[in-house]
Simulated scan of single mutants.
Amino acid sequence: MTKLIGYARVSTRQQSTDRQQADLLAAGVRRDDLHVDHGVSGARASRPQFDRALRALIDGDTLVITTLDRLGR
């Protein structure tokens, strides 16, 4: 069975991922399959939750993001 794996990110700890998370959940991502990085720039090589999201993917799964800039710069 294929899954939707969600990823949300904000660049500063003062920003909120609430809207991104709500959009991902509305798109069908289960809360257990949602990975969120707080205060992590898209230009950084190390994004711990993004790395976890990629490791969670298996053949046929889909990585879901709200906008392309959440993946990186």
Results as ranks from 00 to 15, higher is better:
residue 1 M to R: 08
residue 1 M to S: 12
residue 9 R to K: 08
residue 13 R to F: 00
residue 13 R to T: 01
residue 13 R to D: 00
residue 14 Q to M: 01
residue 16 S to L: 10
residue 17 T to I: 09
residue 19 R to I: 04
residue 19 R to T: 05
residue 21 Q to L: 00
residue 21 Q to W: 00
residue 21 Q to S: 12
residue 21 Q to V: 14
residue 22 A to I: 09
residue 22 A to M: 10
residue 22 A to R: 13
residue 22 A to L: 11
residue 23 D to I: 01
residue 23 D to T: 06
residue 23 D to L: 09
residue 24 L to P: 08
residue 24 L to D: 12
residue 25 L to P: 04
residue 26 A to I: 03
residue 26 A to T: 07
residue 26 A to P: 01
residue 27 A to H: 04
residue 27 A to C: 01
residue 27 A to R: 09
residue 27 A to I: 02
residue 27 A to D: 01
residue 27 A to Y: 05
residue 28 G to E: 04
residue 28 G to W: 02
residue 31 R to Q: 13
residue 32 D to K: 15
residue 36 V to E: 05
residue 37 D to W: 07
residue 37 D to Q: 03
residue 38 H to I: 08
residue 40 V to Y: 03
residue 41 S to F: 04
residue 42 G to R: 15
residue 43 A to W: 03
residue 46 S to C: 07
residue 46 S to L: 09
residue 47 R to V: 10
residue 51 D to T: 13
residue 53 A to N: 09
residue 54 L to D: 05
residue 54 L to M: 14
residue 55 R to G: 13
residue 58 I to N: 10
residue 59 D to C: 02
residue 59 D to E: 11
residue 60 G to K: 12
residue 61 D to L: 13
residue 62 T to M: 14
residue 62 T to S: 15
residue 63 L to A: 01
residue 63 L to I: 02
residue 65 I to V: 15
residue 66 T to R: 09
residue 70 R to W: 03
residue 71 L to P: 01
residue 72 G to Q: 08
residue 73 R to T: 10
residue 73 R to E: 08
